[in-house]
């Protein structure tokens, strides 16, 4: 606390900490939000997708030594394959059914994939090295800051802009948005809605995989890592508005700042502030800062 008041450099570092944490979380939460936005599925398995991304990174980059970038690509590809299997094999039968059924299904996937991870990778806490040239810190003039964290802070916005352009500025994006409005009408117009659905699910899962792969050097791949991340992601998307890309981006930043400055100001209460904010949002604006109220009869 004293350091916050006395040292501008310290404040600056905390700002960077907040942004890099927020951006790492954004990559993962964006997938969750995207899947909900179009498919209307609250995907509890998103955390376990993230965990698989981290584990795949371990196998590719650490174990097989094929390089960091290959690890990220493999994580995205691996999760894309899993997504196709899960969406075509399971989810497609549940669209339009009760939310409870979908929740139970995603929860079953969490348990099955959690056990699978243990069978494949064991139960040890693993560790992934930083990519070459990124294990140090960069001189920013007023202070040094870890290079890898800075990279995360840049990748987040790049993904945000990419997703934004895809959904807001392409024909395919317009179809996707139309699918959220009226899927039957879209079908009647001769659009292949199932392809839209599986693609969205695939992009969402791949984002979780990439997020996990990128988190692996700072976040040891270990059983149970899915449980922590899914809570953080839900806090972010609920604050920002489930289904809203802007909301997820802003929500992730808010979470980063609240978590970091909360940890500094009241060290023993680091989680409380984010959850307090969540409660306030739920009470005053349950659809989130950037979300839209759910219409009846959707």
């Amino acid at each position: 606390m004293d350091m916050l008041l006395s040292s501008p450099t310290f404040v600056f570092i905390q700002v960077l900490n907040s942004i890099s944490l927020g951006m790492n979380l954004f990559i993962i939460a964006a997938g969750l939000s995207l899947i909900f936005g179009v498919l209307r599925v609250i995907n509890f398995a998103h955390g376990v997708f993230y965990m698989f991304g981290a584990y795949i990174m371990y196998t590719v980059a650490q174990d097989l030594e094929l390089g960091f970038v290959t690890g990220v690509i493999a994580a995205a590809a691996g999760l894309a394959v899993i997504a196709i299997v899960v969406e075509r094999g399971l989810f497609q039968w549940l669209y339009g059914k009760e939310h409870l059924m979908q929740l139970l299904l995603t929860f079953a996937i969490v348990l099955i994939m959690g056990d699978l991870a243990k069978i494949i990778w064991g139960t040890d806490q693993l560790s992934v090295s930083y990519p070459d040239g990124m294990s140090g810190a960069l001189n920013l003039g007023i202070t040094f800051y870890p290079t890898y964290r800075l990279m995360l802070a840049v990748i987040g916005p790049v993904i945000f802009i990419g997703l934004f352009l895809l959904i807001e500025r392409t024909r395919w994006g317009r179809l996707t948005r139309a699918a959220t409005q009226d899927m039957e009408m879209l079908s009647a117009l001769g659009i292949n809605v199932p392809v839209i659905y599986v693609t969205i699910f695939l992009i969402g899962a791949a984002l979780a995989g990439v997020g996990g792969a990128l988190a692996a050097p700072i976040n040891s791949p270990t059983p149970g890592m899915d449980a922590t991340i899914i809570v953080e992601c839900f806090v972010i998307v609920i604050i920002g508005g489930l289904g809203s890309l802007w909301g997820t981006f802003v929500g992730a930043l808010i979470y980063g700042f609240v978590f970091n400055f909360g940890s500094v100001i009241v060290p023993n209460w680091q989680d409380v502030f984010a959850f307090l904010l969540l409660m306030v949002v739920l009470l005053i604006r349950p659809w989130g800062l950037f979300g839209k109220p759910e219409r009846e009869g959707h």
């Binding site: 944490l21 940890s263 060290p267």
Partner: peptide
């Protein structure tokens, strides 16, 4: 300094 059980981000503590 205190971090919660299961915490994954320690940047705030490290910089302190």
């Amino acid at each position: 300094l205190r971090s919660k059980l299961g915490a994954t981000d320690y940047n705030a503590q490290i910089t302190q």
